[in-house]
Amino acid sequence: MTERKVWWKTALGVLFTALMLFPVYWMVNVSFTETRDLRADPPHWFPWDPTFEGYEAVFAQQLPALGTSLLIGLGSVGLTVVIAAPAGYALALLHLRGGRTLNFLLLVAQMIPAVVMAMGFYAVYNNLGLLNTVPGLIVADSTIAVPFGVLLFTAFMSGIPRELLQAARVDGAGAWRTFVAIVLPMSRNSILTVSLFAFLWAWSDFIFASTLNRNGDLIPITLSIYHYIGNNTTQWNAIMATAVVASIPASILLVVAQRYVAAGVTAGAVKD
């Protein structure tokens, strides 16, 4: 009897997942549909006769945008890790004075709406001449990930056994050497988690891109999709093809690094 109940649950689970992922399926389906069939009634539920028009358009037009997004994502990952990892070390293992206050500030920083940050950055960048530049966007995008990164590194590094650090000190290693030779290698998993989120957030960012990089020569893929929708509402297959391509990094990361994703979501929210 239990055997049958389990099968029944699997069937229900598949049904729920299918319902949940229907919009994703629909995006893929539309991306393969011929332009003339987009307005067919009833709509084509499956691309029996797939067209690659949409994808050809993506590769003809969107490669620079994809490259820009990749660059911004990697830049944001680098900046986030370089700033957050040493800070986590200082907070977790070097007992930085005022550490509690700093932790508190980081929690508050995560609550500030991105629109507000975008306006502040716009005003600052306007004076510094950083509007419409890739470095400017990298810095702005990294603000989403840095507080999260510091909190995650602090949490993980607090769990590193003190005996190891003491042993290093006995061997004459200073704070820097301990950091590079012991703490960083041991924190590999949290570096991966932080990098993953920093990349995804920078890759998916729309608010900073649409405000700080409105007239740039190099626009990221999110902004490119947005312009596409604005200019070209008849070619939804091409829009959806771009959307599918823009979702590839997320899908790869989900497959390759699923446990880090779940770890990041949980660690950011629940301290149990």
């Binding site: 919009p23 998916s204 929708i229 959307a243 989900l254 779940a262």
Partner: peptide, 23 residues
Amino acid sequence: LRAMFLVPWLLPLIVSASTWAWM
């Protein structure tokens, strides 16, 4: 199946939003 439920959360918001707009 639980892992697949994460997909909507990982997609760029603009992707999900434009898909919903078309649906």
